[in-house]
Amino acid sequence: MKFICLLIGAGVFLPFSCFLGKAQNTFRVMSYNVENLFDTENNPLMEDDEFTPDGNRFWTKGRYYRKLQHVSQVIQAAGEWNALALVGLCEVENDSVMEHLLRRTPLYKQDYRYCMTHGCDIRGINVALLYQREQFRLLGSEELRVPTTGKERPTRNILHVWGEVVSIDTLDVFVCHLPSRYGGELASRKRRKDAIGVLKKCTDSLYYCRKYPKILIMGDFNDTPQDESLEEELEAKAYSPDNKPVKYKLYNLFYDAKGSHKYQGEWNQLDHIIVNGALLQENQALHVQKDSYQVFSPSFLLIPDKTWRGVRPFRTYYGFKYEGGYSDHLPLVVTFEWNKM
């Protein structure tokens, strides 16, 4: 694994305080599957024809720019009074989409930069991480390729980003969008387990590369917390504040959440934010703020569910019907805090 350090001038490593404006004692993170954030251009190498003006979804520039504004609105609302430090995004198409999001919406005021994958997903969708430079200093990034065999379709790469946070801790961040349940949960299970295997190998290796690893994993796993891929393969367990966390174990902060995605009337928790125990120990400089993790569900992200009752996410498309909403997933938000040691 190749690690990159940011050097200034003749090999001088500047302290992070040189890059900061006014320091905060909180550090908020969001994970969000934005539901098919495609531009309107046809990429002949990918199966993205439906998201063009002539495609069967009639994906016009007007709809595209409305989508960009919606994603921007959610990011700003989740940050409340301060810009989110990190935003993991699933289902973004390419660099053009990311540049438009950060330069043609109100997000341009918040000085975000991004890293993203450029994988071989047949539809051309990727994952990305936005980082706010006053709160996270990028040191390096890499894509983790998930192997495929036989006639399996290539899937999305996993994004690994590492950088320095205000507390002078190095934080390793993983953004994942695991293979879908297309063809059935059982038939597709192996593909998600293969992806988890790649992720687990990399997170385990950090305990040999870092003195005190701080690991943050987020994204759409297309599995619930109790499914085999997460609970047994990744070994991401439920976290209880009543029990002392073990620094090298992984804990799913959304193990008992009610759900971020609704399918046929059932809420399921397919989106997750997972941390290692070091980020749950309050004596550490950087740690999860108690009871700060939530499925972010303001009223503008929900509409009445006329088919199954209750409410459901206000989607961009419901099937092939254009609704003009936000996404078929709700975002997750976690707040960290840091102490001067």
Rank of each mutant, 00 (worst) to 15 (best):
Q226V: 14
E323Q: 11
N82G: 06
D169H: 01
V288E: 02
R145T: 15
F296R: 01
D54M: 12
S188M: 06
A238E: 14
P313K: 02
G124F: 02
G265H: 01
R312Y: 04
N33Y: 03
C5Q: 15
F221P: 05
L130M: 07
H287I: 03
W59R: 04
L84F: 10
E93H: 10
S229Y: 09
E35S: 09
E323T: 12
L280G: 02
N268C: 03
N94D: 11
G62D: 14
L279F: 01
R113A: 12
R191G: 06
V246H: 04
V97M: 10
M116D: 09
D48P: 09
L102Q: 05
T149N: 03
M30K: 01
F296M: 08
F174K: 02
L279H: 08
W267A: 10
H70S: 12
Y239Q: 04
C120L: 15
R57Y: 04
F221T: 03
V333C: 06
Y318T: 13
Q269H: 03
H272T: 09
A128Y: 07
V92E: 01
D328P: 00
A77D: 15
N33E: 07
V275G: 11
Y239R: 00
L159A: 01
E80C: 08
F38Q: 10
P154C: 04
N157M: 08
R123N: 11
W338I: 10
F300V: 02
F19M: 07
R133H: 08
E266N: 14
D242L: 13
P245E: 01
V173F: 04
V74A: 05
Q135T: 01
R104G: 03
T307C: 05
A83F: 03
L6H: 12
D223S: 08
G124Y: 00
N56K: 14
T203E: 00
V175Q: 00
A285W: 01
N43H: 14
G265S: 03
R153C: 10
T105Q: 01
L102F: 11
C120A: 15
F58K: 15
G219Y: 06
D204G: 02
K190L: 13
V74Y: 03
K321V: 13
Y131V: 08
I8N: 13
V198T: 01
L84P: 06
K151N: 14
E228V: 12
P179E: 04
K109E: 15
G124L: 07
W81Y: 14
S141D: 08
P106A: 10
L230R: 00
W308E: 09
Y114Q: 02
Y182S: 13
V127E: 00
K249P: 07
E47Y: 12
T155D: 04
L280H: 00
S96V: 14
L68T: 06
Q73A: 14
E80N: 10
V165R: 05
Y326S: 04
S229G: 15
L6D: 13
K2C: 13
T40A: 11
